[in-house]
């Protein structure tokens, strides 16, 4: 079943910010899910994790315009026709190597970014009617913040399904298509057929200074939102 392996060459694909983003997000999502389930005093950490997730997705959206070649939306958002073609190939016997996110993966990135942002924003306005309110809940009516809480609860399992699909796709690549996608997300280097590897090496490199700046901007925005009531009392 394993497709014949072409000669592969390692090439840099994922810049350091994409990797940091990915594993930080994964860690914070696990913390958010666990602390959300546990409740009680752990809810404080749930809010910290949620704030961190919001900062990360804000950063990633900016990085999608300003990051390294394969971090950019323009490099991985594929047309429906292209996505369909790729999906057919994925089910079939062969294996199509893609430098960055493959078309399906690209759509998954967009879906997760959109829904993690939505979930974090719901949380900001939520009121659990026990002892915890999101930092912006006081600026809306009780009715509204309780409705946000309800949406926050309903969206959570949807996000867990998305993450499960994402992991399933990685495992499918590993065991059925014989391509390890985890290692590149750790060391940034993907094994690709020679022509693609050459193209990847020529791809636009990420600016570390710009990455650090944008990350700082994203964190500053989230800290401001969380401290809004203290910064602008009354």
């Amino acid at each position: 079943m394993t497709p014949p392996a072409p000669a592969l060459v390692a090439a840099p694909v994922w810049d350091i910010f994409v990797r940091l983003f990915h594993w930080s997000l994964a860690t914070l999502v696990v913390i958010a899910v666990v602390t959300g389930k546990v409740g009680g005093n752990a809810i404080q950490w749930h809010m910290v994790a949620g704030g961190g997730i919001l900062a990360l997705v804000l950063f990633r959206v900016m990085w999608g315009f300003a990051g390294g070649e394969y971090a950019r939306f323009i490099s991985f958002v594929a047309s429906p026709a292209r996505t369909l073609r790729f999906a057919r190939g994925l089910i079939g016997r062969g294996h199509e190597y893609v430098i960055g996110h493959n078309p399906l993966g690209g759509w998954m990135v967009l879906a997760m970014l959109a829904l993690f942002t939505t979930q974090a924003v719901f949380g900001l306005f939520s009121n659990d009617e026990i002892m915890t309110t999101g930092p912006l809940a006081r600026y809306v009516s009780d009715e509204t913040s309780i409705a946000f809480m309800s949406r926050h609860r309903i969206l959570a399992p949807v996000l867990i399904v998305l993450v499960a699909l994402h992991i399933a796709a990685v495992l499918y690549h590993l065991f059925v298509k014989n391509e390890n996608l985890v290692r590149p997300m750790l060391n940034g280097r993907k094994s690709l057929p020679a022509a693609l590897a050459a193209e990847a090496r020529d791809g636009r490199k990420a600016s570390i200074a710009l990455g650090v700046t944008l990350l700082a901007v994203a964190i500053a925005v989230v800290v401001t939102v969380f401290q809004w009531s203290k910064l602008f009392p009354g």
């Binding site: 546990v38 409740g39 009680g40 005093n41 752990a42 809810i43 659990d128 026990i130 002892m131 915890t132």
Partner: peptide
């Protein structure tokens, strides 16, 4: 926290 957890 324990009380909050028991509410939840």
């Amino acid at each position: 926290g324990a009380v909050g957890g028991s509410c939840k």
